[in-house]
């Protein structure tokens, strides 16, 4: 009944954008074009050599055009992760 994103509001979400970046933050709002408000957001920068680096960013409006995936984050599991020890290749941008 509730349209997809309703249940994500005021929860921690992970956004993957079409340029292959990963933003984490609290979803504060959205509209019909999937423009998003992300509060207390940070970017996770993936690297196969140094592990995941977190960049604090703050309050963001992400334009819907650039959103590829929105996922709910289980904070309990997420807090258990040791990000600097996780090494992974960064995602590529979407190719049209």
């Amino acid at each position: 009944m509730a349209s997809g994103l309703d249940i994500f509001v005021n929860h921690t979400v992970s956004i993957i954008t079409t340029d292959g970046r990963n933003f984490i933050g609290t979803l504060k709002g959205f509209d019909q074009t999937i423009n998003l408000i992300l509060d207390e957001s940070h970017e996770r920068v993936y690297s196969s050599t140094t592990g995941i680096e977190q960049v604090m960013l703050g309050l963001h409006i992400i334009r819907g055009d650039n959103v590829a995936i929105i996922g709910l984050i289980d904070e309990e599991i997420d807090n258990r992760l040791n990000l600097p020890s996780i090494k992974a290749e960064p995602l590529n941008a979407i190719v049209h």
């Binding site: 509060d39 309050l59 992400i62």
Partner: peptide, 15 residues
Amino acid sequence: RGSTIKYLRIPDEVI
């Protein structure tokens, strides 16, 4: 033009 924007970073207190 709005359609060229990827994202906007705005001051925390605005929310």
